[in-house]
Structures are given as C-alpha cells and as structure tokens.
C-alpha cells in the first residue's frame, strides 16, 4: 500500500479523485468485512435446500434452525463483547449450567418459584463479574481465569443439584422455551427463544454502537495502553464485558431450563463456549480485539445452526459433522488472519 503522502502528492485536480477512490476502497473494505460471512450463510442455505430436495426452506425447518441457533446466539453476543476487548471467556458453558441449575432448584420452592428466572440471570452475572474482577483488578490473563472458572463453575453446577438431574415439569415461564410468538395467526410465528436472541443482539448493538461504553470497549480492544492514557477506566470496561458475558450465559441457562424443564449440572452446556467463540470468529470479530460487529456474530451463529441442521437433513453422519464443523473453525481463523492484513494496523 502507498502511504498517505503518496496520495497527497498527486496534482490538485486528481487529489480529490484519489481521495474519493481511497474512500471508496475503504467503504468497499468495510462493506466486505461487514457483510463478511453473510454470502456464505446464504450459499449454505441454498446448497442444503438443493441437496435435501427442498426440505430446508420449509417454515417448520427454518423454525427449528432459529430455535437451535437461539442459545448459542445469546452466548456468542456476550462473547463478542469479551473478544472485542481482546479477551476470551471459556466459562460460558459452565456458567450456563450453573445458572440453569440454580434457576430450576429455586423454581421448585413454593412461593419463590416465580423468581427462578431472575435468579438464573443473577447467578450468571455474579460469575461473570467475578471473572471480570480477577482479570481487571488482579491483571490475570483472561484465558487462564476463565479456564479456571470453566472447571470450578462446572463443579458448582453439579453441587447445586447434588450431581443429579433436576426436573420441574411445571416450571413457570415455560413458554419462553417452547412457545412461539404469533406474528400472523395460523400463518407465521416465531419461537420465543429466537425472539429473545434477537432482542439480545439488538441490545448488544445499541450498547456497542450507540453508547460511550461501546466506543470504550472498542478502544480497550484496539489499544489498551492508549485507552488507559486517554482516561478510560479500563478495569470498569473489563468487568462490564465479562459481567455481560456471564449475564448472557445466565440467560442462556434460563432458556435451556425452560425448554427442557430440566437441567443436569454435568451435561448441560458442555463445550458451548467453543460454539460461541466459533460464531464470533466466523462473524469477523478479530481475535486480538478492537475490530468486529454484533451482526457478524449473528450471522456466525446462524451458520453454525444451519450447518448442524443441514448436515442432518442431508443425512451426513454424526462423526462427519464433527469433522466438517472443525474444519469450519480453522477456516474461520484463516479468514481472520486474511482480514487483519487489510486493516489499518501498521
């Protein structure tokens, strides 16, 4: 790339052209990185539809895909906040399990049963804030801290149900897990799980793109030392992003509990963190922080759901699904590298 001086060096008449071309190129680059994997998602959908002889694009199947994408979308939204600051949260699967267990346990207590939903959210939030505090205040590496809580919180989740599966067939708010919001009676409806996921994406977008905090998150991920010198309270930003990731994991736990009427501290949410991270990276958020968008994450989560659904639909065996999904993760990181090359980081 020529440096800016070379652009300025052009005679006056063409300088505006050069600048316009440069703007166009930047726009194009932004568009490509914003669109990111959307074309891939569309191609996958069309491809699966053709291979499954039209069984993919049916109202029922699309509903299933949206429902399957919901919990991962919520986790990935929280993960987006964390990865934008250059961190990582490996503990979301365990936090999801602990929150679901806490919620279900409380839901069986008479009188207090209705409080299970806020209890699940609070459980997630508290674990998230603990992660954030360890990272921000003790300056421990996020990978290590959340790797530790991945294990520790999993243990707590098992402890909560005395290592058994907790059932509650009459759990309040069960509709959020299995009900649908009717858009046009008898014609179109959308699962509540997907509505929640979409709301989470919208709120995340609002925070990241329309608030001061959002700019601070990007700033911390882009250059932490500069953020500190610019007067940004880096510790507060870090506690916030891990708190949000925990809160969303708690919400994911509540969604799972309502859907299954049950939770098991050992099995629930196992390796969910990997799907969430994959969705974020597929969505074009840079692993080193500072670059990325929540819409990309939504696309990434949908790609994962479409892949799972489509592979089942065309009858690919469970074993090969693993192989294919693994290759998708590597391909995503390769894309990340490629994308960084075009960025302004010098």
């Amino acid at each position: 790339m020529p440096d800016n001086g070379a652009v300025e060096a052009k005679p006056a008449s063409t300088t505006t052209n050069g600048a316009a071309a440069e703007t166009r190129r930047q726009r194009m680059r932004m568009l490509i990185s914003a669109l990111g994997m959307l074309p891939v998602l569309l191609i996958l959908c069309i491809g699966f539809n053709v291979l499954s002889e039209g069984r993919f694009f049916t109202g029922q199947n699309l509903g299933i895909v949206l429902q399957q994408a919901a919990v991962n979308t919520v986790l990935a939204a929280g993960m987006t906040f964390v990865i934008l600051t250059g961190g990582i949260d490996l503990s979301v699967g365990s936090i999801l399990a602990a929150s679901a267990m806490a919620g279900l346990t409380l839901s069986k207590v008479p009188e207090l049963g209705m409080l299970w939903l806020p209890a699940a959210l609070l459980t997630g939030l508290v674990f998230g804030i603990v992660n954030g505090a360890l990272i921000a205040l003790l300056r421990l590496p996020p990978f290590i801290v959340t790797l530790g809580s991945l294990t520790a919180v999993r243990g707590l989740a098992r402890l909560l149900g005395a290592d058994t599966t907790v059932f509650n067939p009459s759990i309040p708010y069960a509709f959020i897990g299995n009900g649908s919001l009717t858009l046009i009676p008898g014609v179109a409806s959308i699962p509540w799980l997907s509505v929640i996921a979409l709301l989470v994406i919208l709120v995340s977008w609002l925070v990241l793109r329309r608030t001061v905090l959002g700019v601070h998150i990007y700033a911390v991920g882009g250059n932490e030392s500069a953020a500190r010198l610019a007067g940004i309270k880096v510790w507060a930003v870090l506690i916030f992003v891990y708190g949000i990731s925990g809160l969303f994991a708690g919400l994911g736990g509540a969604m799972q509990a309502a859907r299954l009427y049950a939770a098991n501290g050992l099995q629930l949410g196992q390796s969910y963190e990997l799907d969430a991270i994959t969705a974020v990276i597929l969505g074009g958020t840079s692993f080193v922080g500072g670059i990325g968008s929540i819409w990309g994450t939504l696309v990434g989560a949908l790609i994962i759901a479409v892949l799972s659904n489509g592979l089942i639909l065309i009858g690919v065996s469970d074993i090969w699904q693993y192989v294919i999904k693994g290759l998708v993760i590597i391909g995503a990181v390769a894309l990340d590298r490629y994308r960084l090359q075009g960025s302004a980081r010098t």
Partner: peptide, 14 residues
C-alpha cells in the same frame, strides 16, 4: 502515538 496514543483501527472521528 502509535503505541500509547491512537487507536489505529478506529476512525479519526472516534
């Protein structure tokens, strides 16, 4: 300015 000042990936506006 590169290490401690600017956010190179962010817009001039930000």
């Amino acid at each position: 300015r590169k290490a401690l000042g600017l956010f190179l990936d962010m817009s001039c506006l930000d």
